[in-house]
Amino acid sequence: MKKKWIVTTAAAAMLLTAASGVYAGAKLQEVKAYLNSSIQLKFNGTPVQPRDEKGNAVLPITYNGTTYLPVRAVADVMGIAVSYNPETYTVELGEKSEGVAIAKGFESMYYTKDPAQTTYQGKDYKEAYFDNAGSKRSSSFMLFPKGKYQKLYLQVAAVGEDIDNFFIEDSEKNVKLKTEKVAVKDGLKTIVVDISGVNELFIYADVENKGALFVPLTTSYYK
Protein backbone atom coordinates (compact mmCIF):
# COMPACT_ATOMS: atom_id res chain seq x y z
CA MET A 1 0.00 0.00 0.00
CA LYS A 2 1.33 3.42 -0.87
CA LYS A 3 2.12 5.31 2.29
CA LYS A 4 1.12 8.94 2.69
CA TRP A 5 3.24 11.47 4.56
CA ILE A 6 0.96 13.37 6.91
CA VAL A 7 1.68 15.75 9.77
CA THR A 8 -1.36 16.23 11.99
CA THR A 9 -2.01 18.26 15.09
CA ALA A 10 -2.76 15.06 16.95
CA ALA A 11 0.65 13.64 16.15
CA ALA A 12 2.20 17.01 16.92
CA ALA A 13 0.62 17.10 20.35
CA MET A 14 2.04 13.68 21.16
CA LEU A 15 5.52 14.35 19.83
CA LEU A 16 6.12 17.99 20.73
CA THR A 17 6.25 17.35 24.45
CA ALA A 18 6.06 14.60 26.99
CA ALA A 19 5.48 16.86 30.00
CA SER A 20 3.45 15.33 32.82
CA GLY A 21 -0.23 16.24 32.61
CA VAL A 22 -0.06 17.60 29.06
CA TYR A 23 -2.88 15.29 27.94
CA ALA A 24 -5.34 16.28 30.67
CA GLY A 25 -8.57 17.32 28.99
CA ALA A 26 -7.33 16.46 25.51
CA LYS A 27 -9.66 14.58 23.17
CA LEU A 28 -7.46 11.52 22.74
CA GLN A 29 -8.45 8.22 21.16
CA GLU A 30 -6.31 5.20 21.90
CA VAL A 31 -5.06 3.36 18.80
CA LYS A 32 -2.59 0.58 18.03
CA ALA A 33 0.30 1.99 16.02
CA TYR A 34 3.88 0.99 15.15
CA LEU A 35 7.24 2.72 15.29
CA ASN A 36 8.51 2.31 11.73
CA SER A 37 12.31 2.12 11.54
CA SER A 38 12.22 1.15 7.84
CA ILE A 39 11.08 4.64 6.78
CA GLN A 40 13.89 6.94 5.68
CA LEU A 41 13.54 10.70 5.36
CA LYS A 42 15.26 12.88 2.77
CA PHE A 43 15.17 16.66 2.46
CA ASN A 44 16.14 18.15 -0.92
CA GLY A 45 17.64 14.76 -1.79
CA THR A 46 19.82 14.51 1.32
CA PRO A 47 19.13 11.84 3.97
CA VAL A 48 18.29 13.29 7.39
CA GLN A 49 17.67 11.77 10.81
CA PRO A 50 14.65 13.28 12.59
CA ARG A 51 15.50 14.26 16.15
CA ASP A 52 13.60 15.71 19.09
CA GLU A 53 14.47 18.97 20.85
CA LYS A 54 17.01 17.11 23.04
CA GLY A 55 18.82 15.65 20.02
CA ASN A 56 17.48 12.12 20.38
CA ALA A 57 16.63 10.19 17.21
CA VAL A 58 12.89 9.70 16.67
CA LEU A 59 11.00 7.32 14.37
CA PRO A 60 7.90 7.76 12.18
CA ILE A 61 4.70 6.06 13.36
CA THR A 62 2.62 3.90 11.03
CA TYR A 63 -1.08 3.54 11.75
CA ASN A 64 -3.79 2.11 9.51
CA GLY A 65 -1.69 2.48 6.34
CA THR A 66 -0.67 6.07 7.02
CA THR A 67 2.77 7.19 8.19
CA TYR A 68 2.92 10.06 10.69
CA LEU A 69 6.10 12.11 10.98
CA PRO A 70 7.25 13.87 14.18
CA VAL A 71 6.29 17.46 13.48
CA ARG A 72 9.07 19.12 15.50
CA ALA A 73 11.76 17.03 13.84
CA VAL A 74 10.42 17.74 10.33
CA ALA A 75 10.02 21.45 11.09
CA ASP A 76 13.62 21.65 12.29
CA VAL A 77 14.88 19.99 9.11
CA MET A 78 12.92 22.43 6.95
CA GLY A 79 13.88 25.49 8.98
CA ILE A 80 10.37 26.18 10.24
CA ALA A 81 9.71 27.34 13.79
CA VAL A 82 7.34 25.12 15.76
CA SER A 83 5.70 25.45 19.16
CA TYR A 84 2.85 23.80 21.03
CA ASN A 85 0.33 25.49 23.33
CA PRO A 86 -0.90 22.85 25.80
CA GLU A 87 -3.73 25.11 27.00
CA THR A 88 -5.39 25.32 23.58
CA TYR A 89 -3.91 22.12 22.07
CA THR A 90 -2.58 24.19 19.19
CA VAL A 91 0.52 23.51 17.13
CA GLU A 92 1.95 26.66 15.51
CA LEU A 93 4.25 26.34 12.50
CA GLY A 94 6.15 29.27 11.02
CA GLU A 95 5.27 32.80 12.11
CA LYS A 96 2.97 33.26 15.09
CA SER A 97 -0.45 34.83 14.59
CA GLU A 98 0.57 37.63 16.96
CA GLY A 99 3.95 39.18 17.69
CA VAL A 100 5.70 38.85 21.06
CA ALA A 101 7.52 42.02 22.15
CA ILE A 102 11.22 41.61 22.95
CA ALA A 103 10.72 43.79 26.05
CA LYS A 104 9.80 40.74 28.15
CA GLY A 105 12.88 39.64 30.07
CA PHE A 106 15.14 42.16 28.32
CA GLU A 107 18.31 43.04 30.25
CA SER A 108 20.94 45.68 29.53
CA MET A 109 22.60 48.60 31.26
CA TYR A 110 21.00 50.76 28.55
CA TYR A 111 17.48 49.49 29.18
CA THR A 112 15.28 52.40 30.17
CA LYS A 113 11.72 53.44 30.98
CA ASP A 114 12.65 57.11 31.31
CA PRO A 115 10.27 59.06 29.00
CA ALA A 116 13.15 61.41 28.14
CA GLN A 117 14.96 58.42 26.60
CA THR A 118 12.06 56.23 25.41
CA THR A 119 10.58 59.01 23.24
CA TYR A 120 11.59 59.15 19.58
CA GLN A 121 10.22 61.68 17.09
CA GLY A 122 7.42 62.62 19.46
CA LYS A 123 6.26 59.09 20.34
CA ASP A 124 6.89 57.50 23.73
CA TYR A 125 7.65 53.79 23.32
CA LYS A 126 7.61 53.22 27.12
CA GLU A 127 10.55 50.81 27.10
CA ALA A 128 13.72 51.12 25.04
CA TYR A 129 17.36 50.27 24.62
CA PHE A 130 19.03 53.69 24.37
CA ASP A 131 22.82 53.87 24.23
CA ASN A 132 23.92 57.51 24.27
CA ALA A 133 27.15 57.00 26.21
CA GLY A 134 28.86 59.81 24.32
CA SER A 135 32.03 58.21 22.94
CA LYS A 136 32.98 56.11 19.94
CA ARG A 137 32.02 52.64 21.08
CA SER A 138 30.63 49.18 20.49
CA SER A 139 26.98 48.92 21.48
CA SER A 140 25.44 45.48 21.88
CA PHE A 141 22.81 43.38 23.60
CA MET A 142 21.50 39.81 23.61
CA LEU A 143 18.09 38.36 22.79
CA PHE A 144 16.92 34.84 23.60
CA PRO A 145 14.19 33.59 21.23
CA LYS A 146 15.00 29.98 22.26
CA GLY A 147 14.08 28.56 18.85
CA LYS A 148 10.38 29.36 19.30
CA TYR A 149 9.94 31.91 16.52
CA GLN A 150 10.27 32.21 12.76
CA LYS A 151 11.07 35.93 12.39
CA LEU A 152 12.46 38.85 14.36
CA TYR A 153 11.10 42.30 13.55
CA LEU A 154 13.65 44.64 15.14
CA GLN A 155 13.17 48.40 15.01
CA VAL A 156 16.31 50.54 15.27
CA ALA A 157 17.18 54.20 14.84
CA ALA A 158 20.48 56.05 14.61
CA VAL A 159 20.42 59.32 16.58
CA GLY A 160 22.87 62.14 15.84
CA GLU A 161 25.28 60.10 13.66
CA ASP A 162 24.83 57.32 11.11
CA ILE A 163 25.67 53.77 12.18
CA ASP A 164 27.70 52.20 9.37
CA ASN A 165 28.16 48.81 11.00
CA PHE A 166 25.10 47.09 12.45
CA PHE A 167 24.48 43.35 12.47
CA ILE A 168 22.39 40.59 13.99
CA GLU A 169 24.17 37.31 14.69
CA ASP A 170 23.26 33.78 15.69
CA SER A 171 25.36 33.78 18.86
CA GLU A 172 25.69 30.00 19.17
CA LYS A 173 26.85 29.47 15.58
CA ASN A 174 28.71 32.80 15.18
CA VAL A 175 26.83 33.37 11.92
CA LYS A 176 25.69 36.83 10.86
CA LEU A 177 22.01 36.72 9.92
CA LYS A 178 21.70 40.34 8.80
CA THR A 179 24.09 43.27 8.24
CA GLU A 180 22.77 46.78 7.78
CA LYS A 181 23.68 50.44 7.67
CA VAL A 182 21.40 52.53 9.85
CA ALA A 183 21.27 56.17 8.77
CA VAL A 184 19.76 59.04 10.75
CA LYS A 185 17.59 59.92 7.75
CA ASP A 186 16.05 56.41 7.84
CA GLY A 187 14.16 57.28 10.99
CA LEU A 188 12.88 54.21 12.81
CA LYS A 189 13.98 51.32 10.60
CA THR A 190 12.45 47.84 10.80
CA ILE A 191 14.89 44.99 10.17
CA VAL A 192 13.33 41.59 9.49
CA VAL A 193 15.43 38.48 10.17
CA ASP A 194 14.67 34.77 9.81
CA ILE A 195 15.49 33.27 13.22
CA SER A 196 14.03 29.76 12.89
CA GLY A 197 15.92 27.40 15.20
CA VAL A 198 17.98 30.22 16.74
CA ASN A 199 18.32 30.20 20.52
CA GLU A 200 20.47 33.29 21.12
CA LEU A 201 20.90 36.51 19.15
CA PHE A 202 23.74 39.02 19.41
CA ILE A 203 22.84 42.53 18.22
CA TYR A 204 25.82 44.79 17.59
CA ALA A 205 26.45 48.36 16.39
CA ASP A 206 29.45 50.67 16.06
CA VAL A 207 28.28 54.03 17.42
CA GLU A 208 30.13 57.31 16.81
CA ASN A 209 31.10 59.95 19.40
CA LYS A 210 28.03 62.13 19.03
CA GLY A 211 25.70 59.33 18.07
CA ALA A 212 23.26 57.05 19.87
CA LEU A 213 21.43 53.80 19.19
CA PHE A 214 17.69 53.68 19.89
CA VAL A 215 15.74 50.40 19.91
CA PRO A 216 12.08 50.49 21.01
CA LEU A 217 11.40 47.25 22.89
CA THR A 218 7.61 47.35 22.81
CA THR A 219 7.31 47.55 19.01
CA SER A 220 10.22 45.21 18.23
CA TYR A 221 8.94 41.66 18.36
CA TYR A 222 9.28 37.96 17.58
CA LYS A 223 6.74 36.28 15.35
Rank of each mutant, 00 (worst) to 15 (best):
N56K: 13
K54L: 09
Y68A: 06
Y84L: 04
D52S: 03
P86S: 13
M78V: 01
V71I: 14
K54Y: 14
T66V: 15
A75S: 11
P50L: 14
T88P: 10
N64G: 08
T67R: 02
I80L: 08
V77E: 10
T90H: 10
A73N: 07
L93H: 13
T88F: 07
A75V: 00
Y68L: 14
E53F: 04
A73F: 04
P86I: 10
V82L: 00
Y68W: 04
R72S: 06
Y89L: 06
N64V: 10
P50K: 09
T88R: 12
T90L: 13
T67K: 05
V74K: 09
R51I: 02
N85F: 11
P70T: 12
K54M: 13
V71H: 05
Y63C: 02
Y89G: 02
T90W: 11
M78N: 05
A75R: 00
G79Y: 13
R51A: 05
Y63K: 01
V74P: 09
M78R: 05
K54H: 09
I80F: 07
V77P: 02
V58R: 07
E92S: 15
A81Q: 05
G65I: 15
E53G: 00
E92N: 14
V77L: 11
E87R: 08
Q49M: 14
P70V: 09
T67A: 08
I80S: 04
Y84W: 00
R51M: 03
Y63N: 04
D76G: 12
G79N: 08
G65K: 15
T66K: 11
L93A: 11
P60T: 12
L59A: 08
V82D: 00
D52W: 02
E53T: 03
Y63Q: 07
E87D: 10
Q49W: 10
L69R: 06
Y84P: 00
T67F: 01
E92Y: 13
N56A: 11
D76I: 01
T66D: 12
L93N: 12
Y89A: 03
L69K: 01
E53W: 01
N85Q: 11
V77H: 01
Y89K: 12
V82W: 01
S83L: 06
G65M: 15
V91R: 05
E87G: 02
L93M: 14
V82C: 02
G65F: 14
A57C: 00
M78W: 02
G55M: 11
P50G: 09
L59P: 01
Q49H: 06
A57E: 01
A57V: 01
T90S: 14
T66W: 07
V82H: 04
Q49G: 06
I80M: 12
L69E: 01
N64Q: 15
A73C: 06
A81Y: 02
D76M: 02
I61N: 03
V74E: 10
Q49C: 06
P70A: 09
Q49S: 15
P50V: 05
V91E: 08
D52K: 05
Y63S: 08
G55E: 07
G55T: 13
D76T: 08
Y68C: 02
R72D: 09
A57T: 03
A75C: 03
T88Q: 14
A81V: 07
S83T: 12
V91D: 02
I80W: 08
Y84G: 00
Q49Y: 10
V71Q: 08
P50Y: 09
A57G: 00
S83C: 03
T62Q: 03
T88C: 10
E92A: 13
N85C: 07
Q49D: 14
T90I: 12
E53A: 04
